[in-house]
């Protein structure tokens, strides 16, 4: 008699468990779908903040960047992807000679997206873009100049030694890994 009782109990427990399983899969059925339909959602596609598509140098509305041509990124780059071409220009106000960025050359073809340039930049002059469609037909087009034509360094970007220590510990848009 006891085994019969156990059989019935097991049967109903089994049925309850099966219904629970069905309920869970039905919840999945009704959930919003995760599939990204890529060419159609090109305009609305969302990427992760930390996604590294290519290196960019943000410019402000006055066509100014923050790069002081110190060359730390070039030294830190393990692949020789970055070339900072600079020249010494005399400041008309103070009369002191100063390094000025001519060309910031970035070779997307050899970049391994290791993020060392961005983390080592003392002025947050470079960042990663989310623009992932980087396929080209010619390898030469992977060489990009990151500073815009006619741009110059932002005035008052040279920090005092006090704030510099602060900047190094803070993260750049959450991109530090």
């Amino acid at each position: 008699m006891k085994s019969f009782y156990l059989y019935i109990k097991e049967l109903f427990e089994g049925i309850c468990n099966l219904i629970l399983g069905l309920k869970i899969s039905m919840m999945n059925f009704l959930r919003p779908k995760v599939t990204e339909q890529y060419p159609e959602n090109r305009k609305t596609a969302q990427h992760f903040d930390r996604f590294r598509a290519r290196l960019v140098m943000p410019h402000n509305e006055k066509n100014e960047h923050k790069c002081i041509a110190c060359g730390i990124c070039e030294m830190n780059c393990p692949n020789g992807t970055i070339q900072v071409l600079s020249s010494m220009v005399e400041d008309p106000e103070t009369g002191r000679k100063k390094k000025v960025l001519d060309k910031y050359i970035y070779d997307l073809g050899t970049c391994t997206f290791c993020n060392m340039c961005v983390t080592s930049c003392p002025h947050k002059a470079i960042a990663w873009s989310q623009d992932f469609e980087q396929a080209v037909f010619d390898r030469d087009r992977l060489y990009c100049q990151l500073n815009a034509e006619g741009s110059h360094v932002e005035s008052k970007t040279i920090p005092t030694p006090k704030t510099e220590g602060k900047q190094n510990t803070s993260t750049v848009n959450g991109q530090e890994s």
């Binding site: 899969s25 999945n28 059925f29 959930r31 919003p32 779908k33 995760v34 599939t35 339909q37």
Partner: peptide, 13 residues
Amino acid sequence: KICGFFQCRIGPN
């Protein structure tokens, strides 16, 4: 299609 929906995909599209 239904299999896709159960797995949170949208199936053949």
